[in-house]
Amino acid sequence: MIQFSKVSREFEVGDERVRALRDIDLEIRDGEYAAIMGPSGSGKSTMLNILGLLDRADQGQYFLDNQDTTALTEKKRAALRRQHFGFVFQSFHLVPRMTAAQNVELPLNLDGVSPRERRQRVSDALDAMGLADRARHRPSQLSGGQRQRVAIARAMIMQPGVLLADEPTGNLDSTSGQEVIQALEALNQRGITLIIITHNPVIGERANRRIHMQDGAIEADTVAA
């Protein structure tokens, strides 16, 4: 469970101080499907970065499963990221020199999982994304949709509770975008918390919960019937 209590974040842009988040109170329960929407500059990316422990709040508190993350060391935050979050980015962020399988394997690799177990988990993850025959392809040999599905497989390989997707369809045509969204929703069906950031209303409408942001504040927070 994710809880924000009066979370604020400011940036200095030139001489100006920009308040990217203003006193955000938010609670996202396990297994929810939430879309964070809003125009660019509304603070939704900052929100996602703080959610994923990539960034810190200046003020307020962030509880992850009732643990206060605000004062943790960088090392502990990295460990929490590894355990709890999978990231899916707009630009995929696959390592170009590695094959699809190696990209998916990377988190296991960094965590020191044994090669035998890694092989099994990677092949299962690629299977689940329908990419079994693409394991040895490099990102440059894959289509956009395939790349994003490799990225989803990688995000899921550590079996996180929360999947954070930042404009996951932003670089895709509508067909592959559709496939990617369906893949993410399938994971949500299996109980994974799915948080998608998007400015595309069509994508946002699909989520049960829609959080609209404007100027660093939550403007509307609706749950579909």
Partner: peptide, 16 residues
């Protein structure tokens, strides 16, 4: 940089 950012996002600490 992008690769380093990714490593951090997937939970690799700075020391690693």
């Amino acid at each position: 940089k992008a690769e380093i950012g990714l490593l951090k996002a997937i939970g690799s600490p700075g020391s690693q």
